[in-house]
């Protein structure tokens, strides 16, 4: 399908992937439909909710706003790339135990935003967490247990946040 399109190549969760899709196709749709990485979610399709957040070249992006063309040669991490060898990432552990996920639909994006925050700021204050997660909406938790989760993960870890390229 769509084989006529030129290849776009990028690395997702440490694996090189090639897709032949329309260059303006949204990265979110490529991840979900072509690569079957359905962890990233669509909540609004217009850059407001952050449930489609992924990390791309060390930045947090809303994948619903990124044409896949822009991902050419990029290094991308999605929620599926957080856990390593079946071990939950410290953030995932913390969300599980602190109650940071309720319905779970914002969680993949929230985890990526939190991972991005800790990569830039390994010991954030609550005010910094609020700011770092302001682009990610959660309708269930009232955010408090998400802040607790990030604080707890930050306290526990020696910041293994360069996992974007970790070997699988």
């Amino acid at each position: 399908m769509n084989a006529g399109w030129p290849a776009i190549e990028f690395v997702v969760n440490g694996e090189t992937r090639n897709v032949h899709v329309p260059p303006m196709k949204r990265l979110l749709d490529v991840l979900r439909e072509d690569l079957h990485l359905t962890g990233s979610k669509e909540g609004c399709g217009e850059g407001e909710c952050g449930s489609c957040s992924v990390r791309m070249n060390g930045e947090l992006v809303n994948s619903c706003l990124v044409p896949v063309l822009q991902a050419q040669g990029a290094c991308i991490q999605t929620v599926e790339g957080l856990a390593c060898d079946g071990e939950l990432h410290p953030l995932q552990q913390a969300f599980l135990h602190c109650g940071g996920a309720q319905c779970g639909i914002c969680t993949p994006g929230m985890l990526m935003a939190a991972a991005q925050l800790l990569a830039n700021n390994p010991r954030p204050t609550v005010a910094e967490i609020r700011e770092g997660l302001a682009g990610n909406l959660c309708r269930c938790t009232g955010f408090k247990r998400i802040f607790d989760s990030v604080l707890s993960a930050a306290a526990q870890t020696e910041i293994p946040m360069a996992s974007e390229t970790h070997a699988r």
Binding site: E80, L82, L88, Q92, L96, H97, A101, G104, T107, L111
Partner: peptide
């Protein structure tokens, strides 16, 4: 911990 929590956290 939430029963379905791990599945949600792993995406």
């Amino acid at each position: 911990p939430r029963k379905e929590g791990v599945d949600k956290l792993l995406g």
